[in-house]
Write a protein that binds this DNA or RNA. Structure first.
Lengths: 165, 165
DNA sequence: GATGAAATTAAATTAAG
DNA sequence: CTTAATTTAATTTCATC
């Protein structure tokens, strides 16, 4: 009998983690290439990947674009404080911010402000428009602080999985 | 002469932008599926995608993982102020921070602090360790403020390309 | 020159042992 | 798990507009 069949609730084994590490960096590796690196054959590799997808470890596959090439050269981290923190206001804010295409990420955080937004726009002018016409237009917005990104020091979508090995 | 061959410096045409939008959301669409949505046949679709890759519009393809499933349930946005801003110190900080696997993103920003880091760890204890043993150990660190993410309101790797259409 | 149909090659997926 | 068969997609070729 096999002892490498991964039951639903169990932690991942080393081969699974290796697969995740590889696919986090390059999702276009073929099953054959991945199998080679794992020292497995193609079929078990293929089945492990499908299981990782099915169980939700892998949420999806995306293409990453170069923001400068597509005219989204300016990224801004905006911190927001709301005026009031009633449930109703919080839900309203969430709903509205999800609709704004310029907002790529939005996190509700603990600390001296309520939300952190990552906003992608073409230039300072577009950000100004975003701020005045969209963000400031939302109800219940208190202070907004804008932090313009001057340089990307590190930018990765890959989680560190070393701890799992 | 052709006017749909995309020279290096020229802006993208509408079909290119549509391709980028589709692949930003789902990189596993087949050429056939993309072609169908564009109203093209497979060959020109295929060639456009390869050109977008070659010219650097598409930087790569990655799998996105569910952080909770892989035991990276805690994400922290840390803002950092350095003590000194000499060229030497800045370069040293950059070099060291790039080596830390917990740091998924690091931006040099304008404003009342110098860097924003996105740090992924398993739990509060691991963050504590990271802070004390790694971040605080770097030379030249001034104040660090940690903002613990309570909820992901929106989280996307897709840039808004509506402006290009 | 770009296009789409068809041929080829390679990969994904399934089936059998 | 492995190997082999099958299906599907990627890639190339080519005749055509």
């Amino acid at each position: 009998m096999a002892q490498n069949n991964l039951p639903k609730g169990r932690p991942l084994d080393e081969l699974d983690v290796q697969i995740l590490q590889l696919l986090q960096r390059n999702a276009r590796l073929t099953n054959r290439e991945i199998a080679l690196q794992l020292g497995l054959s193609v079929t078990p590799t293929y089945e492990r990947i499908r299981r990782l997808e099915r169980l939700g470890y892998i949420q999806g596959y995306v293409a990453l674009l170069d923001p400068r090439r597509i005219g989204q050269a300016l990224t801004v981290m905006a911190t927001i404080r709301l005026k009031e923190h009633s449930r109703e206001y919080l839900e309203q804010f969430v709903e509205q911010v999800q609709k704004l295409p310029e907002v790529m990420e939005c996190y509700y955080v603990a600390g001296d402000f309520d939300y952190i937004l990552k906003v992608a726009v073409s230039d300072m002018d577009a950000y100004q428009q975003f701020l005045v016409k969209k963000l400031a237009g939302l109800e219940n917005i208190g202070q907004v602080q804008s932090h313009f990104i001057m340089m990307d020091i590190k930018k990765s979508t890959a989680y560190p999985l070393d701890a799992l090995l």
